[in-house]
Amino acid sequence: MTEFEWPWQYSFPPFFTLQPNADVRKTQLDAWCSLVLGWARKNNVGQIDVTGATSMVVFRNDSISRALPADGIRVVLDELAKRGNLEWTDKTKRRGYIFWRSVREWGQQIYQWAQDTSRMNTVCTLFEINQGDETAGQEFHGLDGDILIKALRALEVAGKAELMDFGDNQGVKFL
C-alpha cells in the first residue's frame, strides 16, 4: 500500500482556518472534502466520530502545528453530508458514515462484481463480500458493514438483489 499523498493545502497554514470570505471558503471546503474522502478511501475509514475527529491525522498537521478547530470540522462534515458523502447515524450528529463513493455507486460495483463472477441467483454472505478472499482486489473489500448493507438495500430497491437474514449472519441473493 503506498503512502497517502497529502495535497499541497495540507501544509498551507490558512487551510486550517475557516476563511470568512465566501468564495474562498467554498474553494477551501472543496479541498477539505476531497482530502477527507481521499484519506478515508485510502485508509478504509467508514465512520467518523465527531468527538474523536480532532485527534484524527487528517484534521491536523503537526509538522506545521496547525489543526482544524472543532467548529471547522463540523463545517467540513456538514458540507460532506450536504454533498451526499456523509450520513449522520442519528440526529445528534455525533457519528456519521462516510461514503467516498455514494451508496448507489457501491451497489453498482457489487452488482457488477456479482455479474462478473457469475453469482447471479446465488446467495452470498455479507462476510464473503467485504472480507472474503474473492473480493480482495475490489474497492469494496473491507467496506464498513453498515455501509455495505445500505448499498445492498439500494440494490434491493432497484430490484437487483434480495437481502436475507439467517439470524447471526446475513446474506444476499443477486437477481
Binding site: F16, T17, N21, D23, S65, R66
Partner: peptide, 8 residues
Amino acid sequence: AEAVRDES
C-alpha cells in the same frame, strides 16, 4: 479574496 487568514 487576495489574502487568506491563518488563526493560530
